[in-house]
């Protein structure tokens, strides 16, 4: 463990998990680099029509 840690964090993957981790960190005082392989974030969840059990629109 480095003696003087760096106050930034890299999140690899912009699906729902990566987005949530990024938001939590950015909102609690850390600089975040979010790295996404494709042209936009959203991942598989954005492809879903609806989610159960609430049948909410996944988008």
């Amino acid at each position: 463990m480095a003696e003087q840690p760096v106050g930034s964090i890299m999140v690899v993957g912009g699906g729902i998990a990566g987005i949530q981790a990024t938001l939590d960190l950015a909102e609690s005082g850390y600089y975040v680099y979010l790295i996404e392989k494709s042209t936009g974030i959203g991942g598989v969840m954005s492809q879903l029509d609806k989610t159960f059990p609430t049948n909410d629109c996944a988008m």
């Binding site: 930034s8 890299m10 993957g13």
Partner: peptide, 13 residues
Amino acid sequence: TFNVGSIILAAGY
């Protein structure tokens, strides 16, 4: 290159 303290992997499936 980026200098970061931690890395979170969330690359999905």
